[in-house]
Design a binder for these strands. Structure first.
Lengths: 193, 193, 193, 193
DNA sequence: AATGAATGAGGATTCATTCAT
DNA sequence: GATGAATGAATCCTCATTCAT
C-alpha cells in the first residue's frame, strides 16, 4: 500500500484550494495567500512546493484536465460501438465532477491564461487533440468523409455550452447539455427525429 | 457634418488601444499605462476621461458589443425569409470586424470579467438575450416547437467556435465557421445533405 | 468711484471659495479644482491669477487675518479707557465674521501650514504680535508689571477657545466665549466677582 | 517577564516614527514611505501591520493620548486635596513627555484630522471628556456652582498654550505654562496675589 | 481674459517572492 | 517540513501645473 507523503497531501490540497478559490472568485486574479489560507497553510509553503504561482496554477489546470480525462475514460470503459464511443466522450465532458461552476470557471480562466502561457497553451492543445481524436475515431465509421468536420462541430458545441454555463446564473444542467449535443450527433448521422 | 470633439476622439482611440492591447497581451491584465501609451497619451488622461480602469474596460466591452450589434443589423438589412434571418445572425457573428484574434481575445476576457463585475455581466446578458431572440424569432416559423432548443444549440456552437478560434494559432476562418453553423442549421431544419 | 477690475473680482471670489472649501472639507487637503469649481471658474484661471496653490492659500490666510484685523479695529473705534481697549480686542476676536466654523477651520489649518511655510509663519507672527501689543497696551495701565504675562494668558485662552470650537459639534457661541475671557480679565485685574 | 513579539516592536517603532515624522515635517502630509524609512523597514511592512495609512495615524494618535493619560495619572497618584487634583491635571498636561515640539505638532494635526475622520474625532472627544471631568471633579469642592465654567476656562487655556507653543520657535517651556494656568486657577478660587 | 487639454511626479496599496529560523 | 517576517516592484489613481488657443 503506497504511503502518501506529506508532500503529496500538501500539493493536492493546495491544488484543490486553487480550484476552489478560482471558482469562488470567478477569476484567475487570486493571490497565493488566498490559496494558502484556504488550504490552511502558509503561502511560503506553497512556494516551497511549487516554486512559483504560475506552477500552482498550471498544476491546477493539469489536475482539472486529468479529472476530465479520467471521466471520459470511465465512460469509454464499456463502450462497444462507435456511436457509443462518441456518446461516451460527450457524457464524460458533462460528468458531475467537471461540469461544476468552479471547475468551469477555472477552465474558462485557463483558456485566457493559455493566450500568454505556452505551457498552458500546450496543456490545452493536448486536451483538444485528445477530444478531437476520440470524436473522430468514433465518428469515422459512422459518416463518410465528414468525420473531421463533425468532430469540430461537436467539440465547438461542447466548449460553447461550457462557457455559457460558466457565465449563467443557475447551476449547470448536465442532462440538458448532453441532450443538446447528442441531438446534434443524431442529426449529423442523418437520423431525423 | 458632425464635428467630433477631441474628447470623442481620445475616448475612441483609448477604447481601440484597449482592445488592441488586450488582443496583443491575450489578457485583461493590462495596465492603464500600456493602454495610454498605445493610444499615444498619458495615463492621467485616460483617467481624466474614464475615471477608472474599470470604466475603460467596460467601454471597450460596450464598443465590441456595439460593433457586433451593427454587424448583425447590417446582415439583417436585406432579409426576407425567416431562414435568411437566422443566417444573418450567424454571418454577423463571424463578420470580419468581430471575428478577429484581438476582438475574440477581448471577448473571452470579458466573459471572465463578467464573473466578477455586475456591469460586465449585464452587458453580456444583453448580448445573449439579443442573440437568442433573433435566433428564436427566425427559427420559430421553421421548426415546430423546438425553436428555443435549436437557438440554444446554435448560440452555443457560435460561442464555442469563438473560444476555440481565440485560442487557435492560425487566423480565424470566418467561412469555415459560418459553414459549420449553417450546416447545423440545415440539419436542425431536417434538410438532409 | 473706483471701478473694480475683473481681476479683483476673480481673486476675491477665489479666496472666498478657498475659505468655504476649507471649511466644508475641514482640511487644507483641498484641490485647486475644488476651489475653482466652487468659484465657478477653471482651475487654470486660478493659476493665472495666483501662480501657485500655495499663493492661493496664503491669500486666503491674509484675507482672514485682514477680516480679523478690521473687526478688532472696529471694536477699538469708540474706545476711551484701557480696560475698554482690552475688551475690544477680546470682542473683536469673537466677532461674527471670524468666529465661524469655516473660518476657524481655516485658521486651524493655517496654524498647521505655518509649521512648514515660512510665509504662513510670518503672517501668523504678525497676527500674534498685533494681538499681543494691543493687549499689553491696554493692560499696562491696569496692572503693575504683570501686563506681559496677563496678555499671554488672555491670548492663550482666546486661541484655546478657537481651537475647541473648531472641533466642537455645535455652532461657536461668541457670547459664552467673550464672557469666559472677560471673566478672566476681571480676575487678572483683581476684581472679585 | 513578558516577551515582546517582533510585531509589537515593529508596531511601536512605526508609531514612534510616525510621531517623529509628523513633528519633523510639521504636518500630517507625510508618506508611509517616510514613516517606514524612519522606522527602518519597508513601507509594505507598515501596511502589513496596520492595513492602511489611516490606521497608522490613528495608532499614533492613540499612543499620544495614552501617554498623556499616563502622565496625568502619574500626577494624580499622590493627590490628597481637590486643589491638588486640579494642579495634577495641569502639571500632567505640561509633562515633559507630552509638551514637546513633535508631540504638539502631532496633536495639532490630529485636531485637523478630527474634522474629517470620525474615529479621530471620537478619540479627541474621549480626551476632552476625561480632561473636563477631572477638572470639574477637582473644582467642584473649591467653587460654588461655577466649576463647569472654570473647567472650560482652564481647558481652553491649556489647549491655547499648546497650540501657541506648537507654533513658537523656541522650545516649549513647561514651567511657564504651568505657572500661567495655575495663576488662573488661583484667581478662579478667589485668591488674590 | 479664460479654458480645455494634457501630463509628470508622486503616493497609497498589493503581491509574488525570499529567507532565516 | 513549515512559517513569520520582510520587501521590491508594480499598479491604480490624484493633482498641481503648463500651454495652446
Amino acid at each position: 500500500m503506497p504511503k502518501v507523503g506529506i508532500e503529496t497531501i500538501r500539493c493536492a490540497s493546495l491544488v484543490q484550494a486553487t480550484i476552489a478559490e478560482i471558482g469562488s472568485q470567478g477569476s484567475l486574479d487570486i493571490t497565493v495567500n488566498q490559496i494558502a489560507r484556504r488550504a490552511g497553510v502558509s503561502s511560503a509553503l506553497a512556494f516551497h512546493y511549487f516554486g512559483s504561482k504560475d506552477q500552482i496554477l498550471l498544476s491546477a489546470m493539469r489536475f482539472i484536465l486529468s479529472i476530465y480525462g479520467a471521466e471520459v475514460l470511465r465512460e469509454l470503459a464499456g463502450v462497444r460501438t462507435p456511436r457509443q464511443r462518441v456518446e461516451a466522450v460527450i457524457r464524460g465532458s458533462f460528468a458531475a465532477s467537471n461540469f461544476r461552476q468552479d471547475v468551469i470557471s477555472a477552465w474558462l480562466n485557463f483558456y485566457v491564461k493559455a493566450q500568454k502561457s505556452p505551457e498552458a497553451a500546450r496543456l490545452l492543445r493536448v486536451y483538444k487533440r485528445r477530444l478531437r481524436s476520440n470524436l473522430v475515431c468514433g465518428l469515422r465509421p459512422l459518416m463518410d468523409g465528414k468525420a473531421e468536420t463533425a468532430a469540430e462541430g461537436i467539440a465547438s458545441m461542447i466548449d460553447g455550452i461550457y462557457i455559457r454555463e460558466g457565465l449563467g446564473e443557475g447551476k449547470p444542467d448536465p442532462e440538458r447539455a448532453t441532450d443538446l449535443v447528442i441531438d446534434y450527433l443524431d442529426r449529423l448521422m442523418g437520423v431525423s427525429i
